[in-house]
Each structure stands twice: as C-alpha cells, then as structure tokens.
Design a protein around this nucleic acid. Structure first.
Lengths: 254, 254
DNA sequence: CAGTATCCGATGCGATACTG
DNA sequence: CAGTATCGCATCGGATACTG
C-alpha cells in the first residue's frame, strides 16, 4: 500500500515527505525507536488496551479512557487505522461503527501486558489510588466479572461505595447467563449480595494490592448475603488481570 | 522511601502534592496507564535501551541517542534515578559517573524487547532507512560484533560506505582479545577485511531486512579479504538482536 | 568528562461548540 | 451514536552558551 502510493502527491508533497514531515522524532532505524515513535503518543497504548479487552464501539472505547477527549480519540483511531493496527467497519444500517484489531494490533498484546506487569510489580500506587474514577473502576470490574453455574440467573450484586459523592455511590452488576452488565440506576433489583467498601479499599483489593481476605476480616470490605454466594465471591467478582503479580518493595530496588 | 517522606514539605508543598502535580496524565490506577505515564515520555525507553545494552557513562549513553539533547538526557537520567530504575554512582577520583539499572530497571527488558520485536515484525522501514545516522549505525554494529578464536588478534575490519559524505566514509572495527573497538580515524591499520556498501544496504542487511547472501551475490555488499575470514563474516559481524524476526507484508494485516 | 541555565518556538492537546 | 471544527494555552524540549 505504502509502496504503491510513493509517488502520490498531495499539495505538492509526496507521500513520503508527508510521512517524514510528521516528525522523525528519534530518526533511528532501531525497531524500538520506530515502535516508540508510534506507540508512545499520549493515550495510544490505552486505546489499544481497550481494543484488546474487546471494546468495539467509539463510545465503548471512550468509556475506558474517560479523561481522553473525543477529538483525540478520533485522531488516534485514525492513526491506528492508517498504520494497519486497527480495522474500521461501518454497518450499512444505523451507521454503527465497529473497530477491531488487525493481526498487527493483536500482536501488541505482549507489549501491553509486559508494560502492565512491570507497572504492577514496580510502581508506587498511592497517587493513583487517591485519584480513582468511580465509573472507570466499576467498568473495569464489570469487564472481568464472570458468571458461574452455581449462581442464579439473574444474579444481582450491589456495590455501595461509602465515601464517594452520593450520586456515584451505588452500582449494580447483573449476571445473566454468560453476560455481565453494569448498571448505575436503581431498577428495584432484588439484590443477592451487597458489597460495601471505600473506593480506595475496593480498588486495592481488586488490583491485588491488599489481600481480599484481610480486607474482609478487618471490615474494610463487607459482603452481605447468603454464604453460598459470598463464599465464592472471589471467583465471580474476579480481579485485575495482573492482580496475581506481587508488588515489590522499595528496599528491593538495587 | 516514599512513605517516610510523605510529610516532607518543599516550598510549602508536601511530597505527595509535588508528585501529583507533575501531572496525572491519565489519572488511572491501571498499571498500564501508570507505566505508560512514566515510560512513554520522549526518549525514556531509548535511554533504557542503552542501559540494557550495557552503556554506563553519560557520554557513552549519549552516543546511543545522538539526536537527544544532553540537557534532556540529564533530566531523564534524574527521573529514572528518582523512580528507582537507575542507580547513579560517582567515583571519588576523576569524577567518573557510572549509571546502571536497578532490578526494577532490568525488569524493563521484556518491555523493551517486546516493543522492538513488534516494530521489527510490523513497521515499514523505508522512512527510517533514508535517515540513518552513520555514527549510530557503526556504534550499533560495533556493539554486536563478536571476537572469535579463529581470528588473529588484533583483527581489523574496514568499512567503506560509498555514498556518504567523505569525512564519514571510512570506519574500523578492531577485534582484540574479547574486546571490539570502533574507530573513525585512520591509524594506518593493516586491514584484514574490507567491507564496501551503501549505508542503506549495510543497514538493511544488518537489520535482517534483506538477506546478507543475496546482498553479497548482487554486489550490494562487497567483502574483500581472505576467504578464511570472509566465509565466517556473518559470525563476527553479528547482526541486530531482532534480525531473526521476519518482516510481515502489508497484505497480512487483516 | 559530566553536566546546568536560560531562552523561546513548535505542537500537542483539552475545552467547547457544532453536525449528520 | 459517532464523530468534526476551531481556538488557545501550557509544556515540552531543542539550541546555545556556560561551569567545575
């Protein structure tokens, strides 16, 4: 594609010139430099993370990166598409748009995961914990929650975050067949299990930064409901995909 | 360390405030976001690459990132040191400074290599090839060249890059015992092997983007010298650490 | 060798408002 | 739902000159 277009000119510039003018940030043939030039733009890796997690719609992706402006998301998706990392498909009817990763995009899995693993193992988390977006946390939890045959269908879990603004305090996870839905509005569900915690403690436990059993024993996180459900809560609640990686302490850093 | 300092104040700001004010770019507790916030600053990953390759001095590191300003290199090294990724040691005598990776820094190996591998496999290289810094290429080659028992000591290889400015055309690799030195000045060496090529062809062959044997057969790269040395050139010359990864063609990107 | 100080210009990006 | 157009500022980092 690139090669076929090499003599195409736009406003007097050849395709190469336009490509080059973008900025040859590092100007190195080293593959790391070339990758970094492309991947290390603001938000790019987080957008790819969303796509790896299976988001496909523009707004769905946007929910995973709440502080990214829609303008920039649009730009990034275009860049990714141009580079052959993302495919954009538009449905004839309804104008629904469907983004997905190409094989080149899927091949970024190891990059994204190795970076996430490193962060989980080595970075201080307090600053981030002071700054958690409730909507993003719930979205993240909902993404990794799993239905189980032992549960009724639907199975309703209510989250009560006791230290956030009132209108963001309550959320529901609805397990129905193999699907888990997230809901922020009270539909008068008959709740099976209620989980109460501060947003910080819930975040830390879900991320594996504190031990869930400890948190329960010290009443940082309170599960209310039949034991047959709460006993297996760790399974249906799930946890972050890097929760199993232990944090290293500063003293180990030599 | 962080925790002990949390009440320390500088110019009326607590340590946390200073940390936070830096900019919570993404404001996410997600480990990928935290890593990206730190690692995806301009040049950071390339500096880490240099350290992973074993550079230790300020100027030595600087040679591996020739287009990075020394001011910024200084800043980045400080950031990396603050985060516990790099250790800085100063020799009592001579003021020699020695940078090295901590265990947290070494743990970035998989991140750097997965990113390099992705670039090698999926990115177009023509733009980068048009833009190769001669000094950097030779530095890179010198880094991966390996001494062999079959070679005399010293063993001298002359590179003649036939299409670059005259003062950058000739370089020497000096294999002596286990060490390989790079030299840009003619010391009247008695040359064992001479390699002539354009800078583009040498780059492509060394990176594995074209086949070395093909390049030799088509006279793109010319080895002059005794067969006993040139026959095993691929071994002592070495190649990029990702040269074994085949480039994917655009057609595969779906 | 190993940096620091200062200046200043490009640009990246958020905010806001608007479209089909 | 899925974007685009425009504005304006903050900041990042390159260039240059200087230091111990």
């Amino acid at each position: 594609m690139l090669i076929e277009c090499s003599y195409l000119t736009v406003a007097g510039h050849t395709f190469w010139e336009i490509l080059m003018s973008k900025k040859a940030q590092y100007g190195q043939y080293c593959p790391l430099a070339m990758s970094a030039e492309f991947l290390c733009n603001r938000w790019t890796l987080l957008v790819i993370r969303e796509l790896l997690f299976g988001s496909t719609g523009f707004n769905e992706i946007s929910r995973g990166v709440p502080r990214m402006s829609r303008t920039l998301l649009s730009t990034r998706l275009k860049e990714l598409t141009d580079r052959g990392v993302v495919t954009r498909r538009e449905k004839r009817v309804g104008g629904q748009v469907h983004y997905s990763l190409t094989s080149a995009g899927l091949a970024l899995g190891p990059v994204v995961f190795s970076m996430a693993e490193w962060g989980q193992e080595w970075l201080e988390v307090e600053p981030a914990v002071q700054n958690v977006d409730v909507g993003f946390l719930m979205w993240d939890i909902h993404r990794n929650a799993v239905s189980m045959p032992e549960l009724p269908s639907p199975f309703i879990v209510e989250f009560y975050l006791n230290n956030v603004p009132e209108n963001k305090r309550t959320h529901w996870l609805v397990f129905e067949d193999d699907v888990v839905d997230l809901c922020h509005i009270d539909h008068g569900f008959s709740v099976h299990v209620q989980i109460e915690a501060s947003i910080e403690d819930l975040t830390k436990a879900w991320m594996g930064w504190i031990d869930m059993s400890d948190a329960i024993n010290t009443n940082k996180i309170i599960f209310k409901g039949p034991a047959k459900y709460t006993d297996i809560a760790i399974t249906w609640l799930g946890s972050s995909s890097v929760a199993h990686i232990a944090k290293r302490v500063v003293a180990e850093r030599i």
